[in-house]
Design a protein around this nucleic acid. Structure first.
Lengths: 343, 343
DNA sequence: ATGAAAGCGCTAACAA
DNA sequence: TTGTTAGCGCTTTCAT
């Protein structure tokens, strides 16, 4: 408003009585310039609120100071928190974040990769991405993977230890006397769904439990879908004593469906959620669930991509995030088998 | 990977046997160039997957083809949906979106405005922003306001008709026989909170109801806060027969608190939410709430900012979004007054 | 309808 | 330590 629109390095140079390249040095390599000149120039820069033109700078340096985040969607809470962590930390380091939602669609992901390359973005963070290939991505761009193993490709990777989480969870349930365990996955075909199913099966085996395929039911990620899937699970007389939901949102539907059958949680059937979404602590009854620090992960991921941008050949970082059980009121000790209760 | 990293307009020109400026014309003003040359050049552009360097282009045109979205946070579902609508529509028009979360903090907003100017971003969308002033914003940048009236400043504005929503809602409740209406607002000091309180009071008056200040209780936007605020509301014997929650997330806590007092929803106390968040349909009981099309709003907002970028002096657009009642199971007819029930 | 040439604002190699 | 200069890749005016 009150500001002149185009103040350039040339004007700063004139004011300071030095050459433009000296001003440039003050900005980019302050150590190369004499203290007195530096301070004089810095004073003018500050006074004029001068900021280098990013186009001119980018044209020269081939750097945009922009990082892209690709997530399957914006609405899943853990992605929103992740994005928040990333954005805040990036901003601290003077980077900006562009964000794309891929819907786990390979074609769209390709388009996004192309777009990212065309924009000359410095680094990309892929969260739960399909990434069948990334030919469209310009060679050498910094990359970080979240929840997809890139270690073989020499890519920094942040993984959520879903296997460990299910292991903890199944152990917890077994300790409570459960053995008939149902699982209302989200979208069975999504990356997150596939990963959870495999972790679930592995954990079951680890604890000597048989996996009954009909106890694993798919749904999209909404509560309503969870409700419907659970209803199916509850048909017939061979019924689980506890149901794991692939997310807390799904868990709402699970509890709804259990109630609608005239059964109570946890008296008749126990339920556990996933992700500790806001609201789950205030549900009726408060939902036992699994959580991890998505926001903190976002911050560390942002640090990692910046590091990678500045040091393409640095050592690859692999970091694993563990999940913990938040014990609330939806799981109770199971002493009798289902057969005895329902037969 | 398989791609040459720097293919420039010069190379396309050489291949096509024309001058770089002709290639530029083919890209930016195709109508100015002879059909045959145009097709030949276009063929090479396509073959090489050529895309103009955004730095060089921006340096010349002063356009970044980037739009900024500023929201109070990423985690509130309606902002996530809004962002999705905006991003998808922008991408269709070859724009990218950078996103900033302001936490409704004036200082941070100022920093963000500065950043936006420094980045030479083409347009900004402010959602529920404080915007005490926007001196930091470069003069003449395209702007769109969401949920903040900018009509006086000649700024395109998209408003959610919260007043109309509360009017509908209070009418609905009055028709059901309610007159003691409690309101668990979110953050009373936030922009959204303030707006809702004022709309609530106005609607109450419109329908001849007295506003009892102690029936309006604040909370942050979490379920747990909603629970605590509701507990306070339920102390003593002068108790509302229906409680409006400022969001569905808050509503979860409201229901929890009601239940924890040994009361039932809707038999003893009715509850209504706000925003129709996913899960509310599967709650126990399914939550009656208010909704609007946040995703669609995002799309229209994206169209508006693009229009404004291309036509800074075009007519100002003001659009109002109405909300509708989603009637589910948490409100029931109230025939007796509270006094008779609880005295 | 096309080509030639200048210049957007900056950085960095080279010279002094 | 500082100045001089070239050039990043593009668009656009001017000339043809």
């Amino acid at each position: 408003m009150t500001k002149k629109d185009t103040i350039t390095i040339l004007e700063i140079a004139e004011m300071s009585g030095v050459n433009p390249s000296t001003v440039s040095r003050v900005i980019n390599h302050p150590e190369m310039v004499n203290e007195k000149t530096r301070e004089k120039v810095q004073a003018f820069i500050k006074e004029c609120n001068y900021q280098p033109n990013p186009f001119a700078r980018g044209l020269q340096t081939k750097r945009s100071k922009i990082v892209a985040l690709v997530v399957p969607n914006f609405t899943t809470l853990s992605f929103a928190n992740l994005a928040r962590g990333i954005q805040e930390r990036l901003m601290q380091s003077d980077y900006s974040m562009v964000i794309f939602s891929s819907h786990e669609d390979e074609v769209l992901e390709k388009k996004i990769c192309k777009k990212i390359s065309d924009l000359h973005i410095d680094g990309v963070i892929f969260a739960s991405s399909m990434m069948p290939n990334y030919d469209e991505l310009s060679y050498g761009i910094a990359k970080v993977f979240i929840d997809r193993d890139g270690s073989l490709d020499g890519i920094d990777t942040f993984i959520l230890d879903v296997e460990g989480a299910f292991d903890k969870l199944i152990k917890y349930l077994v300790d409570k006397g459960h053995s008939n365990i149902g699982f209302v996955v989200g979208d069975k075909k999504s990356y997150a769904g596939l990963k959870k199913i495999s972790a679930f099966k592995k954990a079951m085996k680890n604890h000597g439990l048989e996996v009954d395929e009909k106890f694993i039911v798919g749904a999209l990620w909404s509560s309503k879908e969870g409700w419907n899937a659970t209803s199916k699970l509850l048909e017939g007389k061979d019924i689980p004593s506890v149901i794991i939901a692939g997310s807390d949102t799904l868990g709402i539907g699970v509890i709804g469906a259990v109630n609608s059958k005239g059964l109570s949680v946890p008296e008749d059937i126990s339920v556990v959620g996933f992700n500790n979404e806001p609201g789950s602590e205030s549900m009726n009854p408060p939902l036992t669930t699994m959580e991890y620090d998505d926001y903190g992960m976002g911050q560390e991921v942002a640090d990692a991509i910046i590091k990678r941008i500045n040091k393409p050949e640095g050592e690859i970082e692999i970091k694993i995030y563990t999940m913990d059980i938040i014990e609330r009121k939806t799981v109770r000790k199971h002493l009798l088998t289902n057969k005895i209760i329902y037969d």
